[in-house]
């Protein structure tokens, strides 16, 4: 039973595609932030960073191939951090 999780082997090709996507998004974010988009610069850069991190989590860190349980844990941790930041900002936004 313990060996089941290891039967899945990710192909080298998959990793290379993911890397290309990640590099593309890196350059895209450099390009986007060099033009002045006003307040949208921050959101654009952070959005790209979030997509990149999701890719890393799913493919490089194997969340896509592992049991769902790992993905649920990881998602809840990010959600928790988001909640904590949100509540902290209830103070700073309305001070």
């Amino acid at each position: 039973m313990e060996k089941e999780q290891h039967t899945h082997i990710v192909k080298y090709k998959t990793y290379i595609f993911v890397l290309i996507a990640l590099l593309f998004m890196t350059f895209a974010s450099v390009a986007i932030t060099s033009i002045n988009l006003g307040p949208y610069t921050v959101s654009a850069a952070l959005l790209l960073a979030s997509i990149k991190s999701i890719l890393v989590l799913l493919i490089f860190m194997h969340l896509k191939f592992d049991k769902k349980f790992y993905g649920i844990m990881a998602a809840s941790v990010f959600l928790l951090l988001a909640c904590v930041i949100f509540i902290t900002f209830l103070d700073y936004l309305y001070r």
């Binding site: 509540i87 209830l90 103070d91 700073y92 936004l93 309305y94 001070r95």
Partner: peptide, 14 residues
């Protein structure tokens, strides 16, 4: 956690 800080000067909403 904020209920330890009611007199610290947080915003009303918080």
């Amino acid at each position: 956690w904020g209920h330890h800080m009611f007199t610290s000067g947080m915003s009303g909403t918080a």
